[in-house]
Design a protein around this nucleic acid. Structure first.
Length: 563
DNA sequence: GCCGTTTTCGGCCCGACTGTTTTCAGTCG
């Protein structure tokens, strides 16, 4: 069933964690459920296919949570959840979505005013009933109304590219100085919740400027300030240059990664905070101007930001066996681009010129096939004309345009062009563009049928997701990965910030099986070739080395793969 | 509830900012 089902089980474990939070339960028990949920969410194996012994092998899953998972898989619920739901109105956790409201406040609101929904909370705040509760005042009442307004028109998470643009805009209007992105933006996640920035500029010089541009000041202090800007939350941390590394490390996270590092610090008689390492014995603060120093002092090799997710990277840093991650400079070409032959804006000649500028050795021209209704596609005749044009253009350029196609995978797994046409091409991408809502088995077999065609070299945007707009198709990823390995078909990492497909978890699993990854920008316009950067970031998040990536290879090696 | 090159019991990351205080709780990252 793939990950849809795992996500359902993970949601239930998270619901238990939230209900326990409101019940003011042991915080470590709550964290255990959250970690368990995360482990389930990230499991490539369908959780329902795993035995109790299998489950116990997973880090973060012990006896209690294993039994809960088994019960949820078999009956749809479990004892822990049921007994919590008897005690607490099930929709009460939605109050936690309001900024500034935590478990203690939810308890008070519920017990004193019988508030169980955001709607009731808003009514209570408007009629000034919140301030009648001991410990809450008029300021809190106003804060709640503001936070509810924000919650109502919350625009959700940003794309990586949007977050970058907003972050750069903020920095451009602040006093000159040293600034670094931190948080999920620095880690290169495909979606970003809020934007974190570290600077060596002092708060006194930055805060007045922030006050001018902010739509709202959330917090304002000498160590950190938070604002709303263009509907997004921005957190800025002011760091002493001598402590910059520790501060950047802290704000980069992830939270779970930070906890791992701090636990490790404790085991070495140190305490890690955002200023440095505190020697427990001498009480001396070891300041860390760069991140490397923190890692060194903890006996770890440097962990690249993209890996800081508590997915085993700390243990690998300890044994100095972290992978050498692929870098942008390793990329020798783009393996997915559209020309005026279909729905792109560039001629073949312009494409080659751009490739020269980018110092690429090759660009795969992969226009749509004519079978595709939504985009103007190439017929076999059109393709022949294009191939002729490519041969002529290539004589005048260092960057070679490769003859290719993005051929449609029809609903039964056949391709949109005959084999005789495909066999003349350098490299063939096959993608699903229509009938995306097939059931798991049908769409999985459809894709595998395409892979089994000897001419297909790459599967384009494998899950078909459009971030925030279209869910991934329900393909059975373990079967797809195994088929990709067996048929020696590469899977695309589509570098468009709207797709980033495959995502990090799937990439990590793919390369562990020895599946090759092809990064393509799917560029339709000149500027979109720069999206390669997002592809490389995502590949790094998936633990990919240069060797795992098809377009780090020379043109001859590439042609060998596509043969 | 999870976990173990000190431990199967006793730990479990750390600090900033705000509001309602009367010395600190709650929330957040």
């Amino acid at each position: 069933m793939g990950r849809g089902e795992n996500a359902g089980v993970a949601d239930q474990l998270e619901q238990i964690a939230q209900l326990l939070l409101i019940m003011d339960e042991n915080t470590f028990k709550i964290r255990a459920y959250q970690r368990g949920a995360e482990a389930v969410r990230q499991s490539l194996q369908p959780i329902s296919s795993m035995s109790r012994a299998d489950l116990l092998q997973v880090r973060g899953i012990g006896k209690g949570i294993a039994d809960a998972i088994i019960s949820i898989v078999e009956t749809g619920t479990c004892n822990e959840l049921e007994s919590l739901m008897e005690k607490i109105p099930p929709q009460l956790p939605e109050l936690l979505e309001i900024d500034g409201i935590g478990p203690k406040t939810v308890q008070k609101l519920w017990r004193h005013l019988n508030i169980t929904s955001i709607q009731e909370l808003e009514a209570a705040a408007r009629s000034h009933r919140i301030r009648t509760i001991r410990g809450l005042g008029d300021k809190k009442e106003e804060e709640i109304l503001r936070a509810i307004a924000v919650h109502k028109n919350r625009s959700g998470r940003m794309l990586l590219s949007e977050a970058e643009a907003i972050g750069e805009e903020i920095i451009s209007v602040l006093p000159p100085g040293r600034y670094s992105f931190a948080g999920s933006l620095r880690r290169g996640r495909s979606t970003i919740g809020d934007i974190d920035i570290v600077t060596t500029n002092p708060a006194v010089s930055v805060n007045p400027r922030l006050r001018e541009i902010a739509s709202e000041m959330i917090d304002e202090g000498m160590k950190k300030t938070s604002i709303f800007f263009k509907g997004k939350r921005i957190d800025i941390r002011f760091a002493d240059p001598a402590e910059y590394g520790a501060t950047l490390l802290y704000l980069t996270g992830s939270k779970e990664f930070n906890i791992r590092l701090r636990e490790r610090a404790i085991s070495r008689g140190l305490r890690l905070n955002e200023y440095g390492l505190l020697d427990q014995r001498t009480k001396e603060l070891i300041k860390c101007p760069d991140e490397e120093m923190v890692f060194r002092r903890l006996g770890l090799s440097f962990v690249p930001p993209e890996l800081r997710e508590d997915r085993g990277e700390v243990a690998r840093a300890e044994s100095d066996t972290l992978p050498f991650l692929v870098e942008l400079k390793n990329i020798r070409g783009d393996l997915h681009a559209h020309s005026t032959g279909s729905d792109g804006t560039m001629t073949i000649s312009e494409m080659a010129g751009l490739g020269d500028q980018l110092s690429y050795e090759y660009i795969l021209c992969s226009d749509h096939s004519a079978s595709l209704g939504v985009a103007r596609g190439l017929s076999p005749e059109g393709l022949k004309r294009q191939d002729h044009e490519i041969e002529i253009v290539n004589r005048d350029h260092t960057c070679q345009i490769l003859k290719g196609i993005e051929v449609d995978i029809l609903s039964d797994g056949r391709l949109g062009l005959p084999d005789a046409v495909l066999s003349d091409l350098d490299c063939v991408i096959a993608s699903i563009h229509s009938v995306l809502h097939q059931d798991t088995d049908s769409i999985t077999r459809r894709m595998i049928t395409a892979m089994e065609n000897e001419h297909v070299d790459i599967i384009g945007h494998p899950t078909g997701r459009l971030i925030g707009r279209r869910e991934p198709s329900s393909i059975d990823m373990p079967r797809i990965l195994a088929a990709a390995r067996d048929t020696e078909t590469a899977l695309e990492l589509n570098a468009s910030p709207y797709r980033l497909d495959l995502d990090d978890i799937y990439l990590k699993n793919a390369i562990e099986l020895g599946v090759t990854i092809a990064i393509g920008t799917d560029a339709h316009r000149p500027l979109e070739y720069a999206h390669m950067r997002y592809g490389v970031l995502t590949a790094r998040r998936g633990w990919c080395r240069a060797d795992d990536i098809l377009n780090t290879k020379s043109i001859n090696e590439l042609m060998d793969f596509c043969r």
